[in-house]
Amino acid sequence: MVDRDIVGGNWIEVPAGKYKKNARTLSHCQLEFNCLYSDLISHAAEGDYSKMAPFRVLSFDIECAGRKGHFPEANHDPVIQIANLVSLQGEDQPFVRNVMTLKSCAPIVGVDVMSFEAEREVLLAWR
C-alpha cells in the first residue's frame, strides 16, 4: 500500500487490459481478478474521489421451524426461510428482494421466491 500511495478507504483503479479474470474462482466475491500491484492507480481523496462509494446494505430475516416454547437451536430446528433486501445507501427502494424457502411458499408480489428441497440447499443459496 505504501509503494502505491494507497490509504485505507481511497479509490483505486485498475486500467483496462491490465487485469485478468481468474479462470477458477477462489472466493464468493462478485469480482475476482489478478493484476500486478504496479498497475494499480491510487486516487488522492480530492474532487470526485473525495466522495465515499455508496454502501450496499443487506437486511435479512431468518425463520426457523421452532419447537413450541424453545428458542430455535441449529441441531433441532431447521431454517425454513431466509428473506433478503439489498439497498444502495441513499436510495428509497431496495434493488434486490428475494426469499429462499424450504419446500415451497405462496408467490410474493415483487419478490424473487426460490424454493429448495433441503435446508442445506437454502443455506448454500443464501451464501
Rank of each mutant, 00 (worst) to 15 (best):
Q81Y: 00
M1Q: 11
H70K: 15
N34P: 00
P107Q: 09
A125I: 02
A16N: 06
M1F: 12
E119R: 10
T101L: 03
V57C: 09
H76A: 11
G66T: 07
V122P: 03
D5Y: 09
H70I: 00
A74R: 08
Q30W: 01
A45I: 00
V111S: 01
I108E: 12
R120F: 13
D61Q: 10
F116V: 08
A23I: 11
H28V: 13
I62N: 00
D5E: 11
D3Q: 13
W11F: 04
F33N: 02
S87T: 14
K51W: 07
V113E: 06
E13T: 13
V79D: 04
A106Y: 05
P72M: 06
L85T: 07
A23R: 10
C64W: 04
K68Q: 04
C64N: 12
D39Q: 12
D39P: 07
C64D: 08
L36Y: 10
D48M: 11
V111I: 13
F116S: 06
R67Y: 02
S115M: 14
L124D: 14
I6F: 04
M114N: 15
E46S: 14
D61R: 10
A45M: 13
S50P: 02
V109F: 03
F71Y: 14
D39G: 09
I6E: 02
N98E: 12
A83C: 08
P94F: 04
L36T: 10
P72V: 07
T101W: 03
Q30R: 13
Q93A: 11
M100L: 15
S38C: 11
D92A: 11
Q30V: 12
L26M: 14
N84H: 12
P54G: 01
D77F: 03
I62S: 00
L123Y: 04
E119T: 14
K21V: 09
Q89P: 01
M100P: 00
A118L: 06
R127A: 14
L40D: 02
A45W: 00
I6P: 02
Q93G: 00
A45S: 14
L124Q: 14
P15F: 05
V79Y: 05
G8E: 15
Q30L: 11
W126S: 13
A53T: 08
W126I: 01
E117Y: 07
M1N: 11
H70N: 06
E73Y: 01
D3W: 07
C105F: 00
G9Y: 02
V86T: 09
K51Y: 11
A65N: 09
V111Y: 07
R120K: 15
S50V: 00
F60E: 09
